[in-house]
Nucleic acid binder design. Structure first.
Length: 197
DNA sequence: CGCCAGATCCACT
DNA sequence: GTGGATCTGGCGG
């Protein structure tokens, strides 16, 4: 499968978030190829979206979201976690898609080593901070270009996941945000047959 | 199982 | 100084 193009990412975050479902997130590191199929995403679009970090405008932290689509926006939160996002839409339109969960595929043993205490349990990659641990992603990869294979971090194309298998719900962790942002259905999940990752 | 507190630090006010 | 796009272990039912 081909690496997703700049054009794919240079669309509104809502479309990108929806279409990323089923695509393969790939991390090449230390001679290993770690990958998993994206099963959950969230869209954050623009300064008017109070759930989006860019609602405070352009700062050193949010500047990456104002840049070219297809780059990684990786930030630190809660004093211990890194979250992985993909910059979307046109330059000067601050928006991104948070990757919240993957179904592990290649390099499962390596990924498990990166998550020593929980790797044997169910749902070991169904959270935005879990997958960054497994894929060894942190601030060092912030701003990295996902359209270049040489980055060692990119997403591969996949057939579009049918609407029948897609669920849209409100985004997670925005409980203190006002409506409509708190409840707007900008979170997308692939319907699973009861089986968690 | 569900609920809750603790961990731990950075960006922004 | 404050609070956060989270996760985990422990405790109670």
């Amino acid at each position: 499968m081909a690496i997703l193009s700049r054009e794919f990412y240079a669309r509104p975050a809502l479309e990108v978030a929806r279409d990323l479902l089923g695509c393969r997130l790939v991390r090449q590191i230390n001679q290993h190829r770690l990958s998993g199929f994206i099963t959950e995403t969230e869209a954050y679009q623009g300064e008017t979206d109070l759930g989006c970090h860019a609602h405070v405008g352009r700062t050193p932290r949010t500047a990456i979201m104002y840049g070219q689509a297809g780059h990684a926006y990786i930030y630190f939160t809660y004093g211990m976690h890194w979250l992985f996002n993909v910059v979307t839409d046109l330059v000067e339109v601050p928006s991104a898609v948070l990757i919240r969960a993957i179904m592990p595929d290649e390099g499962q043993h390596e990924m498990a080593l990166n998550r020593p205490y929980r790797a044997h349990k169910r749902g070991w990659l169904n959270g935005p901070a879990k997958l960054t641990q497994a894929l060894l992603l942190n601030g060092d990869q912030n701003g990295c270009d996902l359209c270049l294979e040489a980055s060692g971090l990119y997403i591969e194309n996949a057939p579009l996941t049918p609407d029948m298998q897609v669920i849209a719900t409100s985004r997670v962790g925005l409980n203190s945000e006002p409506e409509p942002w708190k409840s707007i259905p900008w979170r997308f999940l692939v319907k699973q047959d009861g089986a968690l990752n």
